[in-house]
């Protein structure tokens, strides 16, 4: 342990509104902490810059999964264990249920929250590709009120988001429109469990009458932010499943992504495997939709 706990403040204020009040009154002073699976790692390594933390763990208002008529609303403080084991998510958003199981081991899934995964804004995060493929919206809350925006607009750059210092992720909204869509997801990590992704992908397609009507594809670890592959989605919309332009899709992918070399892999590998995954994805979707 390389940090001195005496130098850090962690305030638990009991309710969401008082947390928001504190975030508003001292903008930028507070670092929200929920399950701690990211922040505590930095803290222990002596690398946590912020000294004032505000506790979100177990704020009841953030831990609910609500099933509405048209949407499922996942509270920002929901853990990935909660998400994985929710019957409606498992049935209607299998991509997200699967991605929740990609995260760490059971102990991490019991603590890591979906808001934390998004706010931390790592390009290698496990849930974003699924959220992109599920047309998620994020609902932000602050003392000023709430706002809702497509998740595609959340990330501004490497570890940068639109979330203001006084805002929290209140909920993730998922439209209940994917019944009958074909899905594909795969994480390529350093090993089968407890792994950080080298490349990951989640996609789903509505396939009717032998054609892809609509397709959504999200990818991680291949750019500074999680990427929705919109150009490829447009190319494929309307394509007959027996004539999927794989080569063209891979070419578009090649221009869309900007992978890097790091401690876990190489940009060459990421580029190649991203292409392979896309190809496997399209073949699989076409196969299941046939």
């Amino acid at each position: 342990m390389r940090a001195c706990p005496e130098h850090f403040n962690l305030v638990s204020s009991g309710s969401l509104s008082s947390v928001l009040g504190m975030l508003a009154s001292d903008r930028g002073k507070w670092l929200p902490i929920a399950g701690g699976t990211e922040i505590m790692v930095l803290f222990s390594a002596g690398k946590l810059q912020q000294r004032n933390l505000i506790n979100l763990w177990n704020l009841a208002e953030l831990r609910e999964i609500r099933v509405n008529e048209d949407t499922v609303s996942i509270g920002g403080g929901c853990t990935f264990s909660q998400i994985r084991s929710h019957p409606v998510i498992a049935a209607e958003f299998p991509l997200l249920a699967l991605a929740a199981g990609w995260i760490g081991g059971v102990a991490n899934q019991n603590r890591a929250t979906i808001a934390g995964n998004l706010a931390n804004a790592s390009p290698a995060a496990d849930s974003p590709p699924a959220l992109l493929a599920c047309e998620a919206e994020i609902e932000l809350i602050s003392a000023r009120g709430t706002r809702r925006l497509p998740y595609t607009q959340c990330h501004l750059g490497y570890k940068r988001t639109v979330i203001a210092p006084d805002e929290l992720i209140y909920a993730i909204q998922l439209p209940r429109k994917f019944s009958g869509w074909c899905t594909y997801a795969r994480k390529v990590g350093t090993r089968n469990a407890q792994a950080i992704s080298k490349v990951c992908i989640a996609a789903q397609a509505k396939i009717d009458f032998g054609r892809i009507q609509t397709i959504r594809i999200g990818m991680g670890s291949i750019a500074p932010i999680p990427l929705q592959l919109s150009q490829i989605e447009q190319l494929l919309a309307g394509c007959p499943i027996d004539r999927i332009p794989l080569v063209e899709s891979r070419k578009l992918l090649d221009t869309a992504i900007t992978p890097i070399d790091d401690i876990r892999s190489t940009k060459t590998y990421r580029r190649q495997v991203a292409g392979n995954l896309l190809e496997e994805c399209l073949r699989t979707l076409a196969g299941t939709g046939a």
Binding site: G36, S44, A107, N110
Partner: peptide, 11 residues
């Protein structure tokens, strides 16, 4: 089940 190294005691 949690990893106690990642739990601030206040939580």
């Amino acid at each position: 089940l949690v990893n106690s190294c990642l739990v601030p005691v206040a939580q």
